[in-house]
Structures are given as C-alpha cells and as structure tokens.
C-alpha cells in the first residue's frame, strides 16, 4: 500500500427510519455519499476498483446507534472538519457524521479493533415483563455462570454469557438498561440474549420484538484480556 495515503476513521449516528437500512446498504450509501461529497477517496487497483472502506461492526436492522464507525483511505484531505461537513451535506436525515479523525499508520482497522460495545436497552410500551427487574438484577449479576442456549440451524449451543458482560445496570425510573458487552468476533454477545437470560431466571420469556436497542458506542481494548481497558474507537488518533 502506498504510504502517502491517509487513513480516516469516521464516526456516525444512525437513527429514525434509517434504522431499517441494512448493513450492506449503509455501505453502498457511503460509497455514493463519499462521491457526492467530492472526497478524494482511495480506490483498489484492478479492473473493477472499489473504495477502500471497512466498517467496525455491522448493526442489526431495526437498531439505532450513536456510535458507528467506518474507516476509509483518502489520497488527500483538506481538514477533518471539512470532510465531516461535506459528508453531512451529502447525507440524509438519520445518518449523521459526528467525528472524522486521522488514524495512526499503525492502527488496526475498525473491524479488527472491536472488543466491546455499549448499549441502552428498554422495553417497548406494552411489552414490559412481569419480572421485577430491579429485584432480579443483583441476583443475576451475582451468578458465576449465565448459561444461554444459542439456537442455530446446525444445532443449539450452550454459551456462558457471564464473562462477556462487562457492565450491566438498570435505571428503574427510565425503564432502561445500560450494558457494556463483548463485541469481539470470538465472543460477541447481543443485548437481547442478556435480557432473555435475565427473564429466564424467573421463568419468563421475552416477547417478540419487545426491545428498543440503541448502540451507544464501540470500543477497542487497550489493556489485556484479563485487565481490559476499553476506549472508544474514535479515541485512537494520530
């Protein structure tokens, strides 16, 4: 790779009706938005060149996010501020760029860096469980093991969610959970799985489409496996 290229990390929000746009289509959206914005993006070689672009972690359809990340390479930049403004000018309501940073040459790409993700989760009106969450949560968190059966086509698999739940709190007044969960490719846990396991303790199951989930941010681990030190992906800057 030519070293006169500059790696940029772009953080954006995704909300409102746009939450129904699938991951691949968000990529397509950005490929065209970058061209509309007139950004001097770098392309791969070959007969069908494409923009050099990596996304941190795909966001499920229907989820909102305040912290999505995408890395691109450019051949030249004016300023990060200018790129952000131009991208926002080429965007639609519901996709909003919140920061653009130059990455150090040594930084891993957005996808490889992902270690954890933070979520706020609440129940849709009318789909709240009977379980008293405030009461059940301390017991749940005190357990050594949190078994969860992951259903898959090739057969079910039992997971232990416990090591991947880095943080789990509940604000009763707002009927909202806050979670920091493992989002690495090896140990990815979904917010819904945690709530399902929690409700299962009192024999209750989660109603269909009962959760409103917002991904708040995505983190890299700058510490070790045992002593993690999570920083948001946009904290990694040149």
């Amino acid at each position: 790779m030519a070293n006169d290229r500059i790696k940029l990390r772009i953080k954006f929000r995704k909300y409102g009706p746009i939450r129904f746009i699938g991951h691949l289509d968000v990529m397509r959206f950005f490929q065209k938005a970058i061209r509309r914005a007139g950004i001097d993006v770098a392309y791969t070689g070959g007969f069908s060149p494409h923009q050099i672009m990596t996304f941190a972690a795909p966001l499920g359809v229907g989820l909102e996010s305040n912290g999505e990340y995408m890395d691109i390479e450019v051949c030249s930049i004016t300023s990060c501020q200018d790129i952000m403004e131009r991208l926002n000018g080429a965007s639609v309501p519901g996709i909003e760029i919140v920061s653009v940073n130059v990455l150090p040459d040594t930084a891993g790409n957005a996808m490889a860096s992902v270690a954890a993700a933070a979520y706020t989760v609440s129940f849709r009106q009318g789909r709240e469980p009977l379980t008293d969450i405030a009461e059940a949560l301390p017991v749940f968190l005190a357990k050594n093991k949190i078994p969860y059966i992951k259903k898959a086509k090739k057969g079910n698999r039992e997971l232990d969610l416990k090591p991947g739940i880095y943080k789990l709190t509940y604000l009763k007044a707002e009927n909202t959970f806050f979670m920091l969960l493992d989002a690495s490719s090896a140990g990815n846990i979904k917010p819904g799985q945690v709530i399902e396991a929690l409700l299962a303790e009192s024999g209750e199951s989660l109603q269909e489409n009962a959760l409103l989930i917002t991904r708040e941010d995505v983190y890299a681990n700058m510490g070790t496996k045992d002593k993690p030190e999570f920083v948001t992906l946009d904290a990694i800057q040149a």
């Binding site: 009706p17 129904f20 699938g22 938005a33 359809v61 080429a90």
Partner: peptide, 10 residues
C-alpha cells in the same frame, strides 16, 4: 426488504 417502504432516499 423494509427499505422498499420507508422512503428517505437521497
């Protein structure tokens, strides 16, 4: 493909 029904295109 819910995208067929939500509008909001550029």
């Amino acid at each position: 493909k819910p995208e067929r029904y939500i509008g909001h295109e550029v």
